[in-house]
Simulated scan of single mutants.
Amino acid sequence: MRPINLHRLENRNAMLPRNSSPFLINFRGFFPSGGLLLLIFALSTSIKLGLEWFKSEKERIEIESQKVNSELSFLKAQLNPHFLFNSLNSIYSLAHKQSKNTANAIVILADLMRYMIYEANKDLVPLEKEIDYIRNYMSLQLLRLKDSSNVKMNIHGNLNFSIEPLLLISFIENAFKYGTDFKGNTNILIKITIEDALLKLYVQNSVSHQQQKTENSGVGLENIKNRLKLLYPNRHTININREQNSYEVNLILKLKNL
């Protein structure tokens, strides 16, 4: 075995700076004079700019979120008076005729208002509750119709999903608003199908020639279109088809699990 030359090792260690180690790298050799300080300054500036960007981006996202929430609150505030106005019109029609169904209509309206007060302020509600709300609304409307034999609603599929409250009612309101002609004949077909977390809503109603002249989407439909854009971006499709004597709505919506 070759002996260690202690004299040579002592001389090599003597060449190292004090408090240094043969295993430490002297970075000064890699940079010209002042280069190391410039590198440290550049790194610290980059970190500072990065932190400021993240802070600014976080604030921007928070502002956008607040904007969306305020817009949704405004749209809901618009929807409630619109719905109440239409419902009171229906009850007034019954009272004017001195119908025996007036008291029953007031009870149904109370149930509808209870849902709007205690459920509609939530972000999501069970789909089954929303469907029950639509059924109650239809029951209220049927009380004022002279002939409801051509008003039909079919519901198929699994209701074990969540949905934003009051999301579908405007399409139903619109059908009852325009689905009765000047003779009092009402033709409305509503289909709700849920399959593979997709809700498909089809609403068709007749439209008289006189109604076509003044027909417009109204506050309710414009409201719901805006809500869909905010709540379901890239997760819904809606097609509205106006024919000479009919009006059709086809909505496909990606539902959320309970």
Rank of each mutant, 00 (worst) to 15 (best):
I4Y: 07
L6Q: 12
R8Q: 15
R8S: 10
L9T: 03
E10Y: 09
E10C: 11
A14V: 04
M15S: 13
M15Q: 12
L16F: 10
P17D: 10
N19G: 09
S20C: 08
F30W: 14
G34D: 10
L36C: 07
L37P: 05
L39N: 06
F41Y: 15
S46K: 11
I47F: 10
K48F: 12
L49F: 09
G50F: 11
L51Y: 15
E52G: 05
W53Q: 14
K55N: 13
R60I: 01
I63Y: 15
S65L: 12
S65V: 15
S65K: 13
Q66G: 12
Q66I: 07
K67P: 05
K67A: 11
N69R: 14
N69T: 08
L75A: 00
L75Y: 00
N89T: 04
S93T: 10
L94C: 08
K97H: 15
K100D: 13
T102Q: 07
I106M: 10
D111S: 13
L112S: 04
R114H: 15
Y115V: 00
M116Y: 01
I117L: 15
I117R: 08
I117A: 11
Y118A: 06
K122V: 05
D123A: 15
D123L: 11
L124H: 08
V125P: 01
K129S: 09
E130Q: 09
I131L: 09
D132K: 13
Y133W: 02
M138Y: 00
S139V: 02
L140E: 00
Q141S: 08
L142N: 06
L142G: 00
L143R: 07
K146W: 00
K146Q: 14
K152F: 09
K152C: 11
L159E: 08
F161A: 01
S162M: 06
P165I: 03
I169R: 01
F171P: 00
N174V: 01
N174Q: 07
A175E: 04
F176C: 04
T180H: 01
T180Y: 01
K183Q: 10
K183N: 15
G184N: 04
N185K: 13
K191H: 09
I194Q: 02
E195T: 10
L198M: 10
N205I: 02
S206Q: 12
S208P: 08
Q211E: 09
K213N: 09
T214P: 03
T214I: 11
N216Y: 04
N216T: 07
G220V: 03
G220Y: 00
E222I: 02
E222F: 04
N223Y: 05
I224D: 01
K225Q: 12
R227H: 06
L228Y: 05
Y232E: 07
Y232R: 10
N234T: 10
N239M: 11
N239D: 14
N241H: 14
N241G: 04
R242I: 04
R242D: 04
R242K: 12
E243C: 09
Y247M: 07
Y247G: 01
V249S: 06
V249Q: 06
N250H: 15
K256H: 12
